[in-house]
Design a protein around this nucleic acid. Structure first.
Lengths: 328, 328
DNA sequence: TTGTAAGCGTTATCAA
DNA sequence: TTGATAACGCTTACAA
């Protein structure tokens, strides 16, 4: 319709080669009039690259999975990559079948997203000739590439913030039977040691990830008569429990006891409040970092092993008091 | 390698036509030895059907979005359809661009997933020559196909359960400025009218969707001296607030006041508890129903308008007491 | 600066 | 029951 060959049209539309202005207009006019849209499927077929990245989640409904996925998908989208999604619904056995499925569709790369806690991800890289990146969970195979939050940094940042505020009797409510929890504890203990201090109460107070655990641990701490002016809680749920227990016991937060949690839960759940000082693991950023790596891997980058993603602290009333609202 | 033509191989592998057992073996052997995997991309290109369904979410990190998505994606996967994912990150303006993107990839159909509350979904069906289904949010265009939870049924089921337990002084904590909330209220009031009753306290007690709202509304209710033996709360967060306020006021749940919420939050968030009787909107089922419709639409089904998906009640201690744990 | 033609892997039509 | 061959819509040498 533009009176040119298909190859000319192809080149112009993809900005390859040099053509006269007249040819450009002819082609653009024809595109306009025909409402022409290139068939991405045919293009993928011709080039052998699908411009598709598989995203395989261990359990998509998990609260922490979506931000990682969205961070990844958005960044991929900005780079003309579409996201082919599949969820294993917490059945590890389903993973390889779904991966196989994505492979048949010739994805250019694969992102395997874990649920961030508990266990390692089983490796599905075998059989893939395209890059596979494990996110928010480490592959059992150390030769695979994994991206995880820097949980030691989480513990360190939280503790250093409390130290900077002049707190010295810092207790820690920990989740021991968990990869992420143990790392957060290590970061906390390390930061204290660097300051020549050790855990208030002489030990970490164990808890589950839940609010009720925070209440129980804090109650135990107060009952033991431990002298404490700050608590680093391994997540925000625990910190909310600690807040409740402290308030019930007549301790003021942060005046008597300052509190730091982890997860940036208030922002994530959209409560619009900012009561808790919290360490944000930046899960969107984690997804973005992993997909950025994947895009680089498409052109040869290969750095096997574990990549940690930095966290950032979000200040709130539980350490700064109500003056937390700094004017712009 | 099998010594047959490509067309024979193609037919055998797809189970089309009749061939001798010898041919079958020859081909299967070759497949085995070569590790042959059909190229889904080439197939899509040849057939003109991509076997791809676009899933466009308004805000994927929203707690209620994932179950819908996973329900849809899983059901589609069982029908050889892959899920092409894109998220608008709460920017309505982004929707059409993303939809355009999915269209360029020649998806066989599109699912637009809302966040279940507040507003209607803007229609992106224009320009699509494949079926588009709106889920968990109704399209502004009544000619579009929408799948939403049956929120009137939610209110009705909750209220009928309380009536069956013999409660007659049933109060309601409502969220008025919201499509879903208003429908739940209507279902409740209808059920009461059918039983010849009306709302305890003479009116619904307004609240936000949050726990704090439940506390405030319940406190107001108690302060007003209303005579109440049950409360239907528009969601579980409100119900948890009501539970706290009732307990603080020395009322026993369910002995003095029975409580029903909505969302099946305890199961969704994996707390492993079952304190609250709740109406489960069955969001996975909603996703499944919408994608089942989409698959039918591929072969001609067309029923424009709003399709409601039934809910189901989950009994818990807040209406049955501790004997809720029925033996298997 | 533009055009010709081969090729990507599969399905589908028709003939044998 | 099997095989040749065109076709799907695009990219990409290579030729002009």
């Amino acid at each position: 319709m533009a009176g040119v060959s298909v190859s000319t049209a192809s080149k112009v539309l993809n900005g390859r080669g040099h053509f006269t202005a007249a040819t450009h207009t002819k082609i653009n006019d024809a595109v306009e009039r025909l409402g022409f849209r290139p068939n991405a499927l045919a293009r993928s077929f011709a080039t052998g690259r699908s411009q598709l990245v598989g995203v395989l989640t261990e359990f998509a409904p998990g609260v922490f999975t979506s931000p990682v996925m969205v961070g990844a998908s958005t960044h991929l989208g900005h780079n003309n990559m579409a996201t082919l999604f599949a969820d294993a619904s917490r059945e590890p056995a389903a993973m390889s079948g779904l991966a196989e499925n994505l492979r048949a569709r010739h994805v250019d790369g694969l992102l395997v997203i874990g649920d961030g806690l508990h266990t390692r991800l089983s490796s599905v890289s075998g059989g893939f000739d395209v890059p596979v990146v494990y996110v928010f969970g480490e592959s059992v195979d150390p030769n695979d590439v994994s991206f995880v939050p820097d949980n030691e940094m989480v513990g360190r940042i939280a503790t250093e913030h409390l130290l900077e505020l002049g707190r010295t009797k810092i207790a820690h409510i920990a989740v021991p039977d968990d990869l992420a929890g143990a790392a957060r504890t290590k970061g906390c203990v390390d930061a204290l040691e660097n300051a020549g201090l050790s855990l208030a109460g002489g030990r970490a107070y164990p808890s589950m990830w839940r609010r009720a655990g925070g209440i129980a641990a804090t109650t135990a701490m107060l009952d033991s008569g431990a002298d404490v002016d700050a608590i680093f809680c391994s997540n925000d749920q625990i910190a909310f429990g600690a807040l409740a227990a402290l308030t019930a016991a007549g301790r003021r937060v942060p005046d008597d006891v300052a509190l730091v949690g982890v997860d940036n839960w208030e922002a994530m759940s959209g409560t619009g409040q900012n009561v808790l000082t919290t360490v944000d693991p930046d899960l969107r950023g984690l997804g973005r970092a992993a997909s950025a790596y994947l895009l680089d891997a498409l052109t040869g980058r290969h750095e096997p092993g574990r990549h940690t993603h930095p966290c950032r602290i979000r200040l709130g009333e539980s350490t700064l008091g109500v003056q937390a609202e700094t004017p712009a």
